[in-house]
């Protein structure tokens, strides 16, 4: 587990990620309430048993988050999902992949 600052996200992941060694599992978001969102970028290592590398940060819903799809193309699905389900803003990522106009807005967000 490694805490990072949202501003340093791109640099941290660029310096860490090597496609041949690390496997990007997903970007996980968890609403802790009171406008706090915990984001976890979960990586594992190829050919190593139960070895996780998790970058995490806590941000608010108002921030515009950077995207890591330039480094990891498959992250686009995770990012589009949290845009839809949590209503966060991520640069260059559009919602609408999972929900459409008639769906509830950001359903996984805490109501508090």
């Amino acid at each position: 587990m490694q805490e990072i600052k949202i501003e340093n996200l791109i640099e941290e992941i660029t310096s860490f990620y090597d496609p041949k060694l690390h496997h990007f599992v997903c970007l996980n978001a968890n609403d802790l309430g009171e406008n706090r969102l915990k984001l976890q970028w979960i990586f594992t290592f190829y050919n190593q048993e139960d070895n996780y590398q998790i970058f995490w940060t806590i941000c608010s819903f108002d921030e515009v988050l950077p995207t890591i799809t330039k480094i990891i193309p498959s992250a686009i699905m995770s990012e589009a999902e949290i845009v839809d389900l949590f209503g966060v803003q991520i640069k260059d990522i559009q919602g609408g992949l999972y929900l459409d106009e008639t769906s509830p807005i950001s359903p996984l967000r805490c109501s508090i």
Binding site: F24, V25, C26, N28, N30, S74, M77
Partner: peptide, 11 residues
């Protein structure tokens, strides 16, 4: 949080 195989393979 459920992450399934097809999910990350679409790109």
């Amino acid at each position: 949080r459920i992450k399934t195989p097809t999910f990350s393979q679409i790109p």
